[in-house]
Design a protein around this nucleic acid. Structure first.
Length: 100
DNA sequence: TAAATGACTCGCT
DNA sequence: AAGCGAGCCATTT
């Protein structure tokens, strides 16, 4: 079963608008857990493939895809499809505005 | 109960 | 600009 913390993360991730990206750290901070960036990555890895959460909008603080392997390519492709601009393998805009 | 893991971040070199 | 090391959190074994 998913703990409340996980559910909170799901909810917050679900609020991320299309065409924008968030960092693991920011996402962690949103749910009141600064420094929990690593934990966020752990949770996302555990996500089922059938999930409809916008997990592909989550990148690292360097503006790059942290997900290695083909999954990373898929993520990049999805972001491009949402009009997210890439410069080589870096996201040009971290257009993320969070209103608490 | 304690030790290990990971789709991270920051500061310093 | 790029690489290295230590710090952080909850989950999983």
């Amino acid at each position: 079963m998913d703990s409340p913390e996980i559910l909170s993360l799901y909810a917050q991730l679900n609020k991320v608008p299309k065409g924008t990206v968030v960092t693991y750290g920011s996402l962690a901070k949103m749910i009141g857990k600064p420094g929990g960036a690593r934990w966020v990555g752990y949770v996302l890895k555990n996500l089922p493939e059938e999930t409809k959460l916008p997990w592909h909008r989550v990148i690292n603080s360097q503006g790059k895809i942290s997900l290695p392997g083909e999954r990373g390519e898929v993520q990049k492709r999805r972001l491009k499809k949402e009009n997210v601009e890439f410069t080589n393998d870096r996201v040009r805009l971290k257009a993320y505005h969070w209103n608490p």
